[in-house]
């Protein structure tokens, strides 16, 4: 599978990563190189093979429903780029 400029633009939007005009060709080429590598997977016979998302043969542990976290807003917002009145600021959100 090879991808083209339009695919890269779509991916850049999905991943919210700006790609400059001068980088788009190099990016497309290097991603195509990776896709050529991973296309080797198509040769494998995986009929009836259960996908393996996690190597552990274990199940989810459950946590008791007790409050364990105190208010640490000040600590967290000290390292935030833009805050006001306890809120994180972003350019206006339009729905």
């Amino acid at each position: 599978m090879t991808i083209e400029r339009a695919d890269i633009e779509k991916l850049a939007k999905l991943a919210q990563i700006g790609i400059t005009e001068e980088n788009i060709v190099a990016t497309t080429n290097s991603i195509n190189s990776v896709l050529t590598l991973v296309d080797q997977l198509q040769a494998a016979d995986t009929t009836a093979v259960e996908p393996m998302a996690n190597p552990l043969d274990a199940t989810q542990r459950l946590r008791a429903d007790t409050v364990s976290e105190a208010n640490c807003r000040e600590n967290f917002q000290n390292i935030a780029p833009a805050v006001a009145d306890g809120l994180y600021l972003v350019p206006r959100v339009i729905e």
Binding site: R63, D65, T66, V67, S68, E69, C72, F76, Q77, G86
Partner: peptide, 28 residues
């Protein structure tokens, strides 16, 4: 529930902004 689905932060309604958002809720 008293706490979040994946963290031990309180779910009580009406708290001051971001005072019930712990490291997990903030995706630190």
């Amino acid at each position: 529930t008293k706490t979040k689905i994946f963290s031990g932060a309180s779910t009580a309604f009406g708290a001051a902004p971001n005072t019930q958002a712990c490291a997990i809720d903030l995706a630190m």
